[in-house]
Write a protein that binds this DNA or RNA. Structure first.
Length: 157
DNA sequence: TATTACACCCTAT
DNA sequence: ATAGGGTGTAATA
């Protein structure tokens, strides 16, 4: 466990409150909670609050510049999470395709596991992964995945 | 150690 | 439609 993380919070009306932890190496995790009291991050050391506000206002935001602290994540999952950071806004890719691109064509399920433990939703855009036969899952609830894809203009059948 | 449970996907029945 | 095997990790015993 990385030590001495700093905790910040930002509420975006109609979407929720984002609590995020930052270490000296970067972002450790993002929690997306139901909206409670209004909270505003005035420090915003990584520029994340600004990006989140832009993102939820509908702008095409690239979170690739936000440093992530992967120290608590196994090398396999880390590789997968780093790979999917490059999926552009508004695009989707299949779990199986990611596995193929990483040279492990039978490991689609492992890719799903990496998404399941993704500590930084939105910043690491695991919502852009879909199953071959449908939408696939989302740890925070499938409605959140649909919301994000809709926000990015992805058409869902 | 061994077992189990996964945000999948392919190939058989 | 459904079952089972291939994958890697983490939680649990």
């Amino acid at each position: 466990m990385a030590r001495d993380p700093l905790v910040y919070a930002l509420t975006i009306p109609n979407y929720g409150t984002f609590i995020y932890e930052i270490s000296d190496k970067g972002l450790i995790r993002v929690n997306w909670e139901e909206e409670k009291d209004l909270r505003e991050d005035y420090e915003d050391p990584l520029g994340l609050s600004r990006l989140l506000k832009l993102y939820f206002s509908g702008e095409t935001v690239d979170f690739k510049g936000v440093p992530v602290d992967y120290r608590d994540i196994s090398i396999t999952y880390r590789e997968i999470l780093e790979f999917i950071r490059d999926i552009p806004y508004g695009n989707t890719i299949t779990y199986g395709e990611v596995a193929e691109r990483l040279g492990k064509p039978r490991s689609a399920r492992v890719v799903g596991n990496a998404m399941r433990i993704n500590p930084c939703p939105i910043v690491i855009p695991c919502h852009r992964l879909t199953a071959r036969n449908g939408l696939g899952g989302y740890s925070l609830g499938i409605d959140k995945k649909i919301l994000l894809l809709h926000l990015e203009g992805v058409n869902i059948c």
